Simulated scan of single mutants.
Amino acid sequence: MRIAFVGKGGSGKTTLSALLTRHLAGSGAPVLAIDGDINQHLAEALGHTGAALDAPPLGAHVRDIKEYLRGTNPRIPSAEAMIKTTPPGHGSRLLRLLGDDELHARHVRHVGDVPLMVTGEFDESDLGVACYHSKLSGVELYLGHLVDGPGEYVVVDMTAGADAFASGLFTRFDMTFLVAEPTRKGVSVYRQYRDHAREFGVRVAVVGNKVTGEDDLLFLKEEVGDDLLTHLVHSSWIRAAEQGREQGELEAHNVHALNVLREAVDACDKDWPTTHRHAVDFHLRNARAWADDRTGADLATQVDPDFVPGQDTATARRAGHPV
């Protein structure tokens, strides 16, 4: 099950991404964390210290990722003909979560007991000539070719604000948690996300953060209504962890909130046809808007009309592709 954490910058979405990931990993569940934020701090939030994590960034290996994932799909003649929205078809390599394949082997590193992949930071060559969404191409391709199921979790710390709507990536999740502080600015992103998400049937639940009392909680309830799933209270444990200090155990209320998040995810039905329909829709949008001109090809032909990931795993397995 794919989980996105979104919200205003500074709302605590990276902290909550790390908390839920560690909570899931601690229960023994298969889980992968992905840092998809322009500010790459998820490794530190998961407890990494010292030198920078040596995880090869997805954003720097997009061509290699395309070359691997296209497999023997006859609709994709080369990596250059493949864009971030190109959906899988017969012959494509499908992935199992943390499977024994070259993509996971190259990009996954462990922070404690948590497997992590990163998109990578901006560097000097990107400034003024690229947007961060080019870095997210690897994440979009990964999720587009991933066949995951109940009891398996991918937790993605997304870019701040409503930037996720600049691509179809926001439709690739089974559940999106919008982290909101109890302030007017804290809930402003919620309204943007709610309206866009409803158009595509994307599940969004609000998680209140840094709640200090009944007034904060009442404010959130008045602003977001039934979309408020749960909330976390101000945490001395989190502050100590952010300062590099260990301090007992996470507060009981906040542990309960993490359990509520997991229960909400587990209650979601995996809807492969809808997910794939969104993927095809955004691929065709990108093809018409820019990609046909850039590649010199009709990228609508990359869509395999008889293929739905998650419903074609038996076919892929017979073809010898990892699923």
Score class of each variant (00 low, 15 high):
residue 3 I to F: 01
residue 9 G to M: 03
residue 12 G to E: 05
residue 15 T to Y: 09
residue 15 T to F: 06
residue 17 S to K: 02
residue 17 S to Y: 00
residue 18 A to Y: 04
residue 20 L to E: 00
residue 23 H to N: 05
residue 24 L to C: 05
residue 25 A to R: 14
residue 28 G to F: 04
residue 32 L to E: 05
residue 33 A to P: 02
residue 34 I to F: 04
residue 36 G to A: 15
residue 37 D to E: 05
residue 40 Q to N: 12
residue 43 A to Y: 08
residue 43 A to C: 08
residue 49 T to H: 14
residue 49 T to E: 14
residue 50 G to T: 00
residue 52 A to M: 08
residue 57 P to F: 06
residue 57 P to D: 01
residue 60 A to S: 14
residue 60 A to V: 01
residue 62 V to Y: 00
residue 65 I to K: 02
residue 66 K to A: 08
residue 69 L to N: 08
residue 69 L to Y: 07
residue 69 L to K: 09
residue 74 P to Q: 10
residue 81 A to V: 07
residue 83 I to C: 11
residue 89 G to V: 10
residue 90 H to W: 06
residue 91 G to A: 08
residue 95 L to W: 03
residue 96 R to S: 15
residue 97 L to I: 11
residue 102 E to G: 01
residue 105 A to L: 02
residue 107 H to W: 08
residue 114 V to D: 02
residue 114 V to Q: 06
residue 125 S to H: 12
residue 125 S to P: 00
residue 127 L to H: 00
residue 127 L to F: 02
residue 134 S to H: 14
residue 134 S to K: 14
residue 135 K to Y: 07
residue 135 K to H: 15
residue 141 L to K: 01
residue 141 L to M: 15
residue 147 V to M: 07
residue 152 E to S: 12
residue 154 V to I: 03
residue 155 V to N: 06
residue 158 M to C: 15
residue 159 T to M: 13
residue 166 A to Y: 08
residue 167 S to W: 07
residue 168 G to L: 09
residue 169 L to P: 05
residue 173 F to M: 06
residue 176 T to L: 13
residue 178 L to P: 03
residue 180 A to C: 15
residue 180 A to I: 07
residue 181 E to K: 13
residue 181 E to P: 00
residue 182 P to I: 09
residue 182 P to Q: 04
residue 186 G to Q: 06
residue 186 G to Y: 09
residue 187 V to G: 02
residue 188 S to N: 11
residue 190 Y to K: 04
residue 193 Y to S: 00
residue 193 Y to M: 14
residue 196 H to G: 00
residue 196 H to Y: 14
residue 200 F to T: 06
residue 201 G to S: 04
residue 203 R to G: 04
residue 204 V to E: 04
residue 206 V to K: 09
residue 209 N to C: 03
residue 211 V to I: 13
residue 213 G to F: 07
residue 215 D to Q: 08
residue 215 D to V: 05
residue 215 D to N: 06
residue 220 L to D: 05
residue 221 K to D: 05
residue 223 E to L: 07
residue 229 L to Q: 13
residue 232 L to Q: 09
residue 232 L to R: 00
residue 234 H to K: 03
residue 239 R to A: 14
residue 242 E to V: 06
residue 244 G to Q: 04
residue 245 R to C: 02
residue 247 Q to K: 13
residue 249 E to F: 01
residue 251 E to M: 12
residue 255 V to N: 02
residue 258 L to H: 10
residue 261 L to K: 08
residue 264 A to D: 15
residue 266 D to N: 08
residue 267 A to T: 10
residue 269 D to Q: 13
residue 271 D to I: 00
residue 275 T to G: 13
residue 276 H to R: 11
residue 279 A to F: 02
residue 281 D to R: 12
residue 282 F to D: 10
residue 282 F to I: 13
residue 282 F to G: 14
residue 284 L to Q: 15
residue 288 R to W: 03
residue 289 A to K: 15
residue 290 W to Y: 15
residue 295 T to V: 10
residue 296 G to T: 04
residue 297 A to I: 01
residue 297 A to P: 00
residue 298 D to T: 03
residue 300 A to G: 15
residue 301 T to R: 15
residue 301 T to N: 01
residue 305 P to E: 05
residue 305 P to Q: 02
residue 305 P to R: 09
residue 306 D to S: 08
residue 307 F to G: 01
residue 309 P to L: 12
residue 309 P to I: 09
residue 310 G to M: 01
residue 314 A to C: 00
residue 315 T to V: 14
residue 316 A to C: 11
residue 317 R to I: 00
residue 319 A to M: 14
residue 321 H to N: 11
